[in-house]
Design a protein around this nucleic acid. Structure first.
Lengths: 345, 345
DNA sequence: CTGAAAGCGCTAACAC
DNA sequence: GTGTTAGCGCTTTCAG
């Protein structure tokens, strides 16, 4: 009975194929160096036994694991899973495997995740951090010369694949103003745990200022579980906003529900916009208006950037950072401001 | 300048701490065997240099990687990412890392994914396969004595963590019948790529039969991109169904949109139910009626099952399979059948 | 084109 | 309680 422990090794294949282990190795790593006959012979035996070179041994020997680490805040938000799919697709085509870790938005988890990934000898790391400016994890990556690329985060000192969130929200405010909205509020999660949210908020503030609108209300929703209730509070006020600009799509979905629960119709009574462009948003009714990011493509590009550097035995540089286009996607959740007299239903 | 290649090793730590590598190893693997003074000394040096034992070397030596492979159809469906979170949480608390792979519902990808994971020396694999009965990947896992656990799939010959989907749908049909529905259709993806969907469909058929209802319509939607249009076709027919039982929540969401596009109100004109209990479903309006599975918990349990077996140096047995409870969750997308005369608006 | 041999970093006997 | 040593499976000079 075959035991797990006697996994077939390069030596077994070599013996059975009547060649040396070196030749078997060559068949897998530089097949052109092996004569066709022996190569076929070896491959035949290998296939017969379902043999694959042991990755740990190879990693130990070559100092390359062909594994990329991925550090994400959570898998609860489709924006990250869409991006992860892009990463997975691109790594697969380049012969890499991935090892993901989530931080659940806890800053100290970032460091732990990175340390663990380094212990596994990953060739590089793709990450979304809470705050690129102050991240200890990035510091460690930098001093240990581990190749890494940030994604979604945007910072001049790091290689990033990101979008101009601040600008996008700024322009979105203008759009809403053109639609006649004057009482516009921003809804976001905990600002301090996300530099992206901060940037989006900055765009909101500057947009409101440029439009000469004051009272740029901020509805900060620390816990998703209570988001709907919290948003509802603002919607029940006199002089409630006629437009909610949410810092992500998940919040926008909850804002829409909050509006419904307050007896407001979306978009007739109140407009709601999101940010991220998660695929699901377009299957909802009303379809989400959102600033759509190319999430899958961002994941893909971050892999390309990283793998290119790795192949050149260097780390990605901040000047290689990529800014991808994001654009406002009209959806049914967004319309002209209601006529003034019926705004405070 | 520190190069990536001269990563600090156990020998460096040993030298700097004035002990042998064996002692350093003991500090990390069986600290109680080391005197407190030397232990502290070693730990101090290790922390100072941010040292962690090289996982590849350890794996090579011990034949245990402390990595679990996870094979899922896609990350596009929250049901799998919720489950993956449960897996990630449980593996983390047990000191395991995970290496995920997606098959995109392609049966032949299953084998490839498993082979790759085995090359990485994973200690076990958690997977969702297209069809447990015929899966070559499962066969390979079995003959190579690699510990594995199926999740969502339900099959007597394999260790599974699953729910009784067939029964749940059967009972759901009864519920709908009690609500006065007689024209009930099932909506599902490609039946042939999912044994779960087949089981749910079987429950639908048996439920309809028991209720003495005929014409159990099946709306098979092979591509998500065209789901809404395809469902709309059925909704525009004379004698359209008054209730749609969807084989998953993502389909239910699209069915709701299709209904809206056909001018039907949910649930007044038509009821829609899903299956899976994705979290997002409860934040929608109407909130999804669905057969709710404990996705996170299923992921967690599959890890426990697998890790337990691994720790006992054996493979999980089919008799250890776990059936978790799923239950119908009332939501706003489901109501009494409309009065007969206005059913065909 | 192929083989022999050293060694990647670690752990587990086995000594002391 | 601690050190010595062999070897996990592989790749990669170096010889031939």
């Amino acid at each position: 009975m075959k035991q797990r422990s006697d996994r077939i090794s390069i030596l077994d294949i070599a013996t059975r194929a009547g060649v040396s282990p070196a030749t078997v190795s060559r068949v897998f790593n530089s097949p052109e160096q092996v004569s066709e006959t022996t190569r076929e012979q070896v491959l035949h035996v290998a296939r017969e036994h379902g043999y694959r070179p042991n990755a740990s041994a190879r990693t130990l020997r070559t100092q390359r694991s062909r594994v990329l680490g991925v550090v994400l805040p959570t898998l609860n938000n489709p924006v990250f899973t869409e991006c992860l799919q892009g990463i997975a697709q691109a790594t697969a085509t380049h012969g890499y495997a991935i090892m993901p870790a989530t931080t659940e938005y806890k800053v100290n988890h970032e460091m732990e995740a990175v340390a663990q990934l380094q212990a596994f000898g990953v060739d590089g790391v793709i990450l979304v951090v809470s705050d690129a400016q102050s991240s200890k994890a990035l510091e460690r990556l930098k001093t240990s010369k581990t190749p890494y690329t940030l994604i979604y985060n945007r910072h001049p000192d790091h290689p990033c694949v990101s979008v101009e969130g601040e600008l996008a929200v700024h322009e979105l405010v203008q759009k809403m103003v053109h639609l006649g909205h004057t009482r516009i509020a921003m809804v976001c999660g905990q600002l301090k745990t996300s530099d992206r949210a901060q940037q989006r908020y900055a765009g909101f503030v500057s947009g409101m200022r440029q439009a000469r609108l004051e009272a740029a209300e901020l509805i900060e929703v620390p816990f998703v579980e209570t988001a709907i209730e919290q948003i509802s509070v603002s919607l029940k006020k006199d002089n409630r906003p006629t437009a909610l600009i949410c810092s992500n799509d998940l919040l926008a979905i909850r804002a829409i529900r909050a509006a419904h629960q307050c007896g407001l119709r979306v978009p007739q009574d109140i407009s709601v916009t999101g940010f991220d462009g998660i695929q699901l948003g377009q299957d909802l009714t009303p379809a989400l208006s959102t600033i759509s990011q190319p999430n899958y493509e961002m994941g893909r590009q971050s892999v390309l950037l990283l793998v290119k550097a790795i192949n050149e035995s260097r780390v990605p540089e901040s000047r290689e950072s990529l800014t991808l286009a994001c654009q406002f996607q009209w959806g049914e959740s967004c319309a002209q401001a209601p006529a003034p007299h019926c705004a405070n239903t």
